[in-house]
Design a protein around this nucleic acid. Structure first.
Lengths: 219, 219
DNA sequence: AATTAATTAAAACGTATGATTGAATGTAAC
DNA sequence: GTTACATTCAATCATACGTTTTAATTAATT
């Protein structure tokens, strides 16, 4: 009972991440969560796609909820990093950036992953990001993953639009995020703003979206 | 076997709709679907809230999916009707209405049900409308219920903004709907555009949203 | 080679779901 | 009062879910 348990590093971390069970699970989960949603995706469909045993999920992640958190954080981290980086670059160049410049730094990274990812990975990640707001149980997890980004951009917009009240800016900001998520989720539908994942088309879509959003923000 | 079966009207329709099993089920389903989503709401939680037998749902509606369709259509019908009516009124007054006037006719009815409904019914219906786009399985059902409205308003906007291409207008229109739904779903969150369901606050929120959306549409 | 821990595998657990059944009850018509 | 139908009810079906358990397997350490 009161025996001292010697705990070893539980994650020896294989050098070659391909074939790593954790990565296989995360990859399959990412795709299925993005396609079907979190609630609608069963652990059994994930292990089928990942070709691993059912117990592996609980061994490596503990529960379905923790797997969801891990999947979301793995997707969000690079996006948040890119967003903050772009904002910092814009602010370094110009101490008081325009609304358009701020919105570009905020919207571009999420849309760019659509063609930066290998194969369809980017589109999958984009959809997964969108899903974070569509399921009420999951929203807090997604909000936490993107909290740092939201907070930073809201302050930047506050400085660019000093005449607008905080509450006004907050709901406008919220609507811009809603627009971004809609664009991500509807990326393959007919007449969507984002027709294909070519770099040129993505850049054009970003510009269209930035102009649309900026007009609203300044209204 | 080949006996001529005399089929009576399957819905004798009680004059007093209160106490009607179908209505009780629809009311409970509406609230629970709106609060928890369609997939997350079990038929058993519905019959518990409606105080009816489980078989009653299958007897009156056939399946969970058909109950969902019935719930959505009951909610959508008055909204679509109000939207088309407001648009017709605007067009009757002015042959070529402004973008703002069109958007007002399009956004106001959905937001107004928030305080027109008795008690919390309005807020529930608003959230239910929002849910129609958040669950992928349900989206086609919702789209069908609002198809007539979408189609009509898109043509009206096309006439008001003849310089913009159809595809451009389509994705802008889609983003405006996304904004509306976000407003409906986030109606009770802090810093939401819609703070309470008082008529004055709702009218102000409608104006803010119309201005925000019109600026984007014209960009 | 022996030992120890990390990982995978198969099977089952308890619970919940949507759906169905067949009997009971109510209700109007003849 | 009997028949015919609409409706309600309790019970059950088959299936699927997230989780846990126990044993087998693999890999590293000594």
């Amino acid at each position: 009972m009161a025996r001292p348990i010697q705990i070893r590093d539980p994650l020896p971390m294989v050098s070659d991440s391909f074939g790593d069970t954790q990565t296989q699970i995360l990859d399959a989960a990412e795709q299925l969560f993005a396609e079907q949603g979190f609630g609608a995706t069963s652990l059994r469909s994930i292990i089928r796609a990942a070709d691993v045993n059912l117990a592996a999920i609980h061994y490596h992640f503990g529960s379905k909820e923790k797997l969801i958190v891990a999947t979301i954080e793995r997707m969000a981290q690079p996006i948040v990093q890119a967003e903050l980086q772009q904002l910092a670059a814009v602010q370094a160049e110009h101490p008081q950036p325009t609304v358009e410049a701020i919105l570009h730094a905020m919207l571009a990274p999420a849309l760019e992953i659509v063609y930066h990812g290998q194969g369809d990975r980017g589109l999958t990640q984009a959809r997964l990001m969108g899903r974070c707001r569509t399921e009420p149980t999951i929203e807090p997890i997604g909000a936490r993953a993107f909290a740092k980004s939201s907070q930073t951009f809201l302050t930047a917009l506050q400085q660019a639009l000093p005449d607008q009240s905080t509450s006004e800016l907050t709901w406008k900001f919220d609507l811009v995020i809603a627009m971004l998520i809609r664009v991500l989720c509807a990326a393959d539908q007919p007449n969507a703003i984002l027709q294909d994942n070519s770099p040129a088309e993505t850049a054009a879509a970003i510009e269209r979206l930035v102009n649309f959003a900026a007009a609203g923000m300044k209204s």
